[in-house]
């Protein structure tokens, strides 16, 4: 294994995938540096989920190669599965179990000692302690998503895949998830997230790649992507609040306010 490989938490080269007649990926290449947040941006049906499923060993590629944490997904799926956690497009939580039971379940399946303590720590970190004993079917969308992400953190995998983590969430829940993702990266976890929201990529990602018609058409930092367009013209514009600002100030419980007082999500620093 070369040292170059080790520098990348995820490396995707020439990935191709078709479903019967439909070609979804036509040669996808990208690398994700360790400890960074990488956003795969694309419209619905661009193939983002297909890339994630191949990386998560849930789907086999037709051609090309992919490594996670230095392990090839096709030849070493076992080690790959030890290296990452997947938070899929729909919160994959057990509705019948309580929040705490969901966490304990995953901790047991990861063969960790003291699953109960791990569960309690995560419930605390994700502000779910009060809801811990309730069936997940009573949770809101945001709570489900937080539980879902908490389940993915069990066992501290070096890489986390988040497939459209905020689709279908209201603005507050979305900000909660963003805080969680940022905290993850700060603690050294590599995050590969897919999104169709441009703002989300802008907010979170160190690097952004745009997947379009089965290929990566651009890949760079936000600043680099911005340079692709002609330099901004200086215009005099009145700074208007966005609808989101209005909404959040009216409903008045911005979950992790600028003061940072209620900041409960993510690892303690």
């Amino acid at each position: 294994m070369t040292t170059q490989l080790q520098d990348h938490a995820v490396r995707v080269q020439g990935l191709e995938k078709s479903y019967q007649e439909l070609t979804v990926l036509r040669g996808v290449d990208f690398d994700v540096a360790r400890g960074s947040i990488f956003a795969l941006l694309g419209s619905n049906g661009a193939g983002k989920t297909t890339v994630v499923r191949i990386l998560a060993t849930l789907l086999r590629a037709d051609a090309g190669s992919a490594t996670v944490n230095g392990f090839d997904v096709a030849t070493h799926p076992g080690q790959v599965r030890e290296s990452f956690s997947l938070t899929g497009q729909f919160a994959a939580v057990d509705e019948v179990l309580t929040g705490r039971e969901n966490l304990v379940l995953v901790a047991r399946l990861r063969h960790l000692t003291d699953p109960g303590r791990i569960a309690d720590d995560l419930l605390d970190r994700f502000s779910l302690t009060e809801a811990a004993g309730r069936k997940v079917s009573t949770y809101s969308g945001g709570m489900r998503r937080r539980l879902d992400i908490a389940m993915s953190l069990i066992g501290d995998p070096p890489v986390i895949f988040l497939d459209e983590p905020t689709t279908g969430l209201d603005p507050q829940a979305r900000i909660e998830v963003w805080q969680a993702v940022k905290a993850l990266a700060e603690s050294g976890t590599t995050v590969l997230l897919t999104t169709q929201y441009l703002q989300e990529a802008e907010q979170l990602a160190d690097r952004i790649a745009i997947l379009h018609q089965g290929r990566i058409i651009v890949n760079g930092t936000l600043a680099e992507l911005k340079q692709l367009l002609p330099p901004a013209e200086v215009e005099h514009v009145e700074k208007q609040p966005t609808l989101e600002d209005v909404f959040l100030s009216l409903v008045g419980d911005r979950p992790h306010g600028d003061t940072g007082q209620h900041r409960n999500v993510g690892p303690h620093e």
Partner: peptide, 13 residues
Amino acid sequence: QSGILDRFQSMPI
């Protein structure tokens, strides 16, 4: 349907 099978499948079990 719920995706929990995918979650289990993607874990080292």
